[in-house]
């Protein structure tokens, strides 16, 4: 682990290499944040023990890295999406289907997050898309600092959509801002319609919920209407799309959502129509 910033902690590897070898000579195109932050500090006196009263966000370091990432995305005019789901919901299949529909580089790039293996990045690269794999080791989520390093490995240009496939986990990734423009929660119809209320933090933090594997709806007891109602109970604004990455049903709505989100990124705020990204 890097003794100065803590990056490279544990067994994190990016593109098969340790996240940090040593602090002297490692490259960053993002800033390191070692300062204590902008906390308001008031000390009380005391002879032996002393209280320090502050207001400092516990994830302030992650949040500052996330802000750096967001600034880089905006400067590059790259739409960044953080895809979150439980393991096996079909994130990688959705990405390979998306790659087939919109083409590889420069239209899209992918950061893959898994505890181990390069399998998902290899599946993405097989479609002609630039992908970098982050192996988080024992860590159950991606954080903003890992994303800053992974971006250095990718060629990003104006109009690229960067998909960040988070570790399959419906709990932990909700707490960590990566600097993305939208979190997209993917739920497959084989999982049960009550996931949004069982794991409310994730659905509360997402702007879009994709119901995947709709080709299996005739074979499973999944109540779509109830699932949407549960999702809106924890997030009244959440947009919902239904699709099957396997047979392509509903993919055009997803591509339209992507195009709309990308347009919103490059349209100055004052020119944007006052409508939601999607209903």
């Amino acid at each position: 682990m890097c003794g100065v910033c803590g990056c490279g902690d544990g067994e994190v590897r990016i593109g098969g290499k340790p996240a940090h070898k040593s602090h002297s000579g490692h490259d960053h195109s993002h800033q390191h944040h070692h300062e204590a932050g902008s906390a308001t500090v008031n000390s009380d006196g005391g002879d032996q023990n002393r209280w320090l009263h502050i207001e400092q966000d516990i994830l302030s370091k992650n949040d500052r890295y996330a802000e750096d990432n967001r600034a880089r995305f905006n400067e590059l005019e790259v739409l960044a999406l953080n895809l979150v789901s439980s393991p096996g919901a079909g994130k990688t299949s959705l990405l390979t289907a998306t790659a087939e529909a919109i083409g590889g580089a420069p239209h899209m790039a992918v950061i893959e997050g898994d505890q181990e293996t390069e399998n998902d990045a290899e599946r993405i690269r097989a479609t002609g898309v630039d992908a970098v794999q982050i192996n988080t080791g024992r860590v159950c989520h991606l954080d903003a600092h890992m994303i800053g390093h992974a971006m250095d490995e990718l060629t990003l240009s104006a109009g690229t959509v960067l998909f960040i496939e988070n570790v399959g986990n419906l709990v932990c990734p909700a707490a960590f801002d990566l600097g993305e423009h939208h979190k997209v929660a993917i739920l497959s119809v084989t999982e049960g319609e009550d996931k949004p209320i069982k794991y409310p933090d994730m659905f509360a933090a997402s702007d879009l919920m994709i119901l995947n594997k709709t080709d299996l709806l005739p074979y499973v007891d999944f109540d779509v209407e109830r699932c949407v109602e549960y999702a809106r109970r924890v997030n009244p604004q959440i947009a919902v799309l239904q699709l099957s990455a396997r047979n392509g049903e509903g993919m055009e709505d997803w591509l339209a959502w992507l195009a709309n989100a990308s347009d919103r990124l490059t349209t100055p705020v004052r020119q944007r129509p006052v409508v939601q990204v999607n209903a």
Binding site: N49, W51, L52, H53, I54, E55, Q56, D57, I58
Partner: peptide, 8 residues
């Protein structure tokens, strides 16, 4: 999610 006080 904030630290509000530390006793040293």
């Amino acid at each position: 999610m904030q630290i509000t006080a530390i006793e040293f």
